[in-house]
């Protein structure tokens, strides 16, 4: 059995998850503790260097603006414009449809109620040829309204 940390034990130490026995070994073994320190130092160097260099690189570039707020504002403006347009159209709609609709001229229905006219029609019918046996006579029978009204056919 080796007197030094195994690879798995070393990695546990490097990621800060060392167990009691491993920590005890690190306290006693300068080789292992030195190796863990070197590896941790490399990772720390990596972090510091990469961070600094990326930040330098970023600072050299002009920061790009992120158009998140303007997009929202544009949407908001369009939404209000759409609502306003809808309200105007809804208000104007009855007027527009009324003007365009063709006027229906209601002609009064002329009902022949004059007694003289009725008598003329009867006379005209009677002066004609003799009716056929099955010829309908209904058109000559006056309706109830003429019978009850004064001046109607009795």
């Amino acid at each position: 059995m080796s007197n030094h940390l195994s690879e798995d034990q070393f990695i546990r130490c490097a990621v800060g998850r060392a167990e009691r026995a491993e920590l005890q070994h690190l306290g006693e073994c300068s080789d292992c503790s030195g190796e863990v320190d070197r590896f941790a130092g490399s990772l720390s160097l990596f972090q510091g260097t990469i961070r600094r260099r990326i930040e330098n690189r970023i600072s050299l570039k002009v920061p790009k603006t992120i158009p998140v707020t303007p997009v929202e504002q544009i949407h908001s403006k369009w939404r209000w414009a759409l609502i306003a347009a809808t309200v105007v159209i809804m208000t104007m709609l009855p007027f527009l449809t009324r003007e365009n609709k063709p006027r229906v001229v209601v002609e009064p229905v002329v009902i022949e109620t004059d007694p003289d006219a009725i008598m003329n029609a009867v006379n005209f019918h009677l002066s004609g040829t003799v009716s056929a046996p099955m010829e309908p006579m209904l058109s000559l029978i006056p309706s109830e309204q003429f019978i009850t009204k004064s001046g109607g056919v009795q």
């Binding site: 490399s42 990772l43 160097l45 990596f46 260097t49 990469i50 600094r52 260099r53 990326i54 330098n56 690189r57």
Partner: peptide, 26 residues
């Protein structure tokens, strides 16, 4: 290439050593 970026805070020798280690991890 991250090593194109200038880093003027350390000496050229140190920079070379740092670059080597960082490059290995990168």
């Amino acid at each position: 290439d991250i090593y194109e970026w200038p880093d003027r805070r350390i000496s050229p020798e140190e920079l070379a050593a740092v670059n080597e280690q960082v490059e290995a991890i990168w």
